[in-house]
């Protein structure tokens, strides 16, 4: 990790009643770094993302996030009563209601010509791309992705992986991708973190391979990560 950090989390503990979902967790994300956070369901991955997004502030420990943050959720969460481009400029808040900025962002997610469409007319993948355009239009320093491909069909998901990778290369935000899909993480990330059941990072895998990647080249890491996640039958011998 290069000097500048965009996210610096130290000793983060989050409790829901008696249960700690995250306990004394440390995470660092560098400028422009693509980090994937893997974990079984209920391991607190989304909780960490919500803390970084400022949606959950009742925590112990120190959380520092620099610059502008954007979030894309598993559901697109776009406003059904606004046309597509007006949903995109929501990401700009008050800095103008500039249609041309929205159109540029829409072109980047391959939705040119959909600016005036109503959200209900979009497919799941298209709606998710609008959500991505809304996140990117504000030129975030940190992009938080909360299983944004989880609800999409397999083919659309693959297309979205390529799109996200390309957008990341062009804009270079720091990215935290929360997912339970190991292959997705191996495809996209510079570094994979595995969050254990006890609410701490149990292992960390830097991925040095050039992109685009092939899963075949990473079978070793894949087996290790699956092992960390408690899936042992694939473990290499």
């Amino acid at each position: 990790m290069a000097g500048e950090l965009i996210v610096q989390v130290e000793g983060l503990t989050k409790r829901f009643g008696q249960r700690s979902v995250l306990s004394s967790l440390d995470v660092r994300i560098g400028h422009g770094e693509f980090v994937a956070l893997l974990g079984r369901s209920g391991s607190g991955k989304s909780t960490l993302l919500r803390v970084l997004a400022g949606l959950d502030t009742e925590v112990e420990g120190s959380v520092r996030v620099e610059g502008t943050v954007s979030v894309a959720f598993q559901q697109p969460r776009i406003l059904p009563w606004r046309r597509v481009w007006r949903n995109v400029v929501l990401g700009l808040r008050d800095q103008g209601r500039d249609r041309s900025l929205a159109e540029r962002a829409l072109a980047e997610v391959r939705l040119d010509g959909h600016a005036d469409a109503w959200p209900r007319t979009l497919s799941g993948g298209e709606a998710q791309r609008v959500s991505l355009a809304r996140a990117l239009v504000r030129e975030p320093d940190l992009l938080l992705l909360d299983e944004p491909f989880g609800a999409l069909d397999a083919l659309t998901r693959l297309a979205m992986h390529r799109l996200v990778e390309q957008l990341w290369r062009e804009h270079r935000p720091g990215v935290l991708l929360v997912t339970h899909d190991v292959d997705e993480a191996l495809q996209l990330a510079d570094r994979v973190l595995v969050l254990g059941q006890e609410g701490r990072i149990v292992s960390e895998y830097p991925l040095a391979l050039a992109r685009p990647r092939r899963i075949d080249d990473q079978l070793g890491v894949r087996a290790e990560i699956l092992n960390d996640l408690g899936v042992t039958e694939y473990a290499s011998t």
Partner: peptide, 8 residues
């Protein structure tokens, strides 16, 4: 929540 995350 989506708008809260955008700082609204």
């Amino acid at each position: 929540e989506a708008t809260t995350a955008l700082g609204y």
